[in-house]
């Protein structure tokens, strides 16, 4: 198959899937896979291509989710307006945060992003008057009962993100992102304004993640600080999805999200093991780092070679 046709083929398959009589539960799983794919692709832009490993994407997810939630809760507007509004709110937020944390390099940047997510969680939990605190926000009336509409909305968001990231990576910005990742001093001396391009990568990545947060509020109908600002369930899972799928690869986030969501659901369904799915994720991450450091997509040749040898 010709290369440009692969994304179209994947999109076509995803577009007709709801017509194949899937159960409500399966539709729910697919929606989660697509949402995580989008978050993974956004993280990949900043962490994979630009090399700025963020441990705090829950911050952007949460701010997006609360933008939608508060719009409904405070202004009685439809939470769907949160999707366009979250782009603006999260972009401004990421820009300001980036001004502080992007001066740090490597592990210090990672720790600062981790802290920013936690600070937001604790703030949201305690700022009762504004955020309703730990009680969270409940959307009283759901827009649709069926899953199909939600599925197509997240599919559109995912397709848009895929195209955007693909175009960015092939452009001048993409080259500059990778140059920053490989060596910031060399990039500077080649005339690349490293602070500027790191900020761009951060803001785009954050805004796309924020859209997913706003979608989440509409889809789930309930958010609280513990869910949307979660370190382990959002920030860390985002990194795992990209690591498992393949850092700085086009299809890595989709593959990673598919595996992680299905794995989480499967482990949760095993009696007595349910709560320990995080432990399994940890083991999986260790195995990936040891044997497939470039992820399933990045090390695909290695995998096929292994199986080829086994058969011969």
């Amino acid at each position: 198959m010709k290369k440009p046709l692969i994304p179209l083929a994947v999109l076509a398959v995803l577009a007709v899937l709801p017509f194949s009589g899937l159960s409500t539960y399966m539709m729910h799983i697919l929606i989660l896979v697509l949402m995580w794919t989008t978050i993974g692709m956004s993280w990949n832009l900043l962490g994979g291509y630009c090399g700025q490993v963020s441990f705090g994407h829950a911050a952007y997810f949460g701010v997006g989710a609360y933008t939608a939630g508060l719009l409904y809760f405070k202004l009685q507007a439809s939470a769907w307006w949160g999707i366009p509004l979250s782009v603006a709110v999260v972009s401004v937020f990421a820009f300001v945060l980036g001004y502080i944390v992007l001066k740090l390099r490597g592990p210090f940047f990672a720790l600062a992003t981790l802290a920013s997510g936690e600070v937001l969680r604790i703030t949201t939990e305690n700022w009762n008057g504004f955020t309703n605190g730990t009680l969270g926000i409940l959307i009283q009336e759901r827009t649709w009962v069926a899953k199909t509409q939600y599925y197509y909305i997240i599919l559109a968001i995912t397709a848009f993100t895929f195209l955007l990231v693909r175009r960015l990576v092939a452009s001048k910005w993409g080259y500059y992102f990778v140059a920053v990742r490989e060596d910031q001093d060399a990039a500077e001396s080649l005339g690349i304004d490293t602070t500027k391009y790191k900020t761009i990568a951060l803001v785009v990545s954050a805004a796309l993640t924020g859209i997913c947060g706003a979608f989440y509020t509409n889809y789930m109908g309930f958010i609280d600080p513990h869910i949307v600002f979660a370190l382990h369930d959002i920030s860390i899972i985002t990194i795992m999805i990209v690591m498992v799928g393949g850092v700085a690869t086009q299809w890595g986030p989709l593959v990673g999200a598919g595996i992680m969501v299905l794995l989480a659901e499967w482990i949760r369904s095993i009696p007595g093991l349910g709560a320990s799915h995080q432990a399994f994720f940890g083991v999986l991450l260790v195995l990936i780092i040891l044997f497939l450091p470039n992820g399933i997509v990045g090390d695909f040749r290695k995998i096929t070679r292994l199986f080829g040898r086994a058969r011969a």
Partner: peptide, 24 residues
């Protein structure tokens, strides 16, 4: 001035310890 501004003005450099963009 920052190095990227000076580079834009028309000055480029190499490094004693080479710094290729390794995975490119």
């Amino acid at each position: 001035l920052k190095p990227h501004k000076i580079c834009r003005m028309g000055m480029a450099r190499t490094f004693q310890v080479v710094k290729p963009l390794q995975r490119m």
